[in-house]
Computed example of a mutant assay.
Amino acid sequence: MSQTQSSLPAPFLPATQSLPSSDRPVLVLRPSSYNCCEFEVVTARYMPDYRPRSPWRDISGNAISDSGSGDVIAWCYADAILSPKKVA
């Protein structure tokens, strides 16, 4: 296990060990290009059926690599904070 994977904050799961269900909202950790932090947090979805060669998409549907590193270190489900609002 790498140094980065051993220091993952809970409840993040290493992307090398498991992947989320398709099209559910997740928070993704990717390497940061900034000196002030080790990770960047991206709101995303894993969509292998939609884009098999680039399955990690941001919430707007663009590849997460469009805004920085495409390397996903870890992820966690974010349904509770990212699910669409229900209209009353």
Rank of each mutant, 00 (worst) to 15 (best):
L13P: 01
C76M: 10
E38D: 12
D79S: 13
A80F: 11
V87A: 04
S22D: 12
R24P: 02
D66F: 08
R45E: 08
L19D: 06
D71M: 10
A15F: 13
Y34P: 00
S67W: 07
A80P: 00
S67V: 04
S21Q: 14
C37F: 05
C76Y: 00
F39C: 05
D66W: 09
S32W: 03
F39H: 15
L8M: 09
P55T: 04
W75L: 02
S32N: 04
R45F: 03
V28I: 14
W56C: 01
V87G: 01
R57F: 04
S33C: 04
D23L: 08
G70F: 09
I59E: 14
D58K: 07
Q5E: 15
A63C: 08
T4L: 14
A15G: 05
E40W: 00
R57A: 11
A15Y: 13
Q5V: 15
A88C: 01
S2N: 15
V72M: 05
Y77F: 14
R51T: 10
Y77L: 15
A63R: 07
N35F: 04
P20Y: 09
T4N: 05
P55C: 02
S60C: 08
P11A: 09
A15Q: 08
D79C: 09
D79V: 11
A63E: 07
L29M: 02
S21N: 13
S2G: 10
S69C: 08
P84K: 12
D49F: 06
V72K: 01
A74C: 03
Y50P: 00
I81N: 11
T43L: 02
W56M: 02
S6V: 11
P84C: 09
Y46L: 04
E40Q: 06
W56I: 02
P31E: 08
S83W: 06
V72I: 10
P52S: 05
I64W: 02
I73C: 04
F12I: 08
P55F: 00
P25D: 10
L27V: 15
N62C: 09
D23F: 08
M47C: 15
P48G: 03
S65V: 01
Y77K: 03
S67G: 12
S83T: 11
Q17W: 05
N35A: 08
S22A: 15
P14Q: 06
F39Y: 15
G70D: 07
S6R: 14
R24A: 11
N35T: 03
S6G: 03
I59H: 07
S32K: 04
S7A: 13
N62D: 10
N35V: 00
I64G: 01
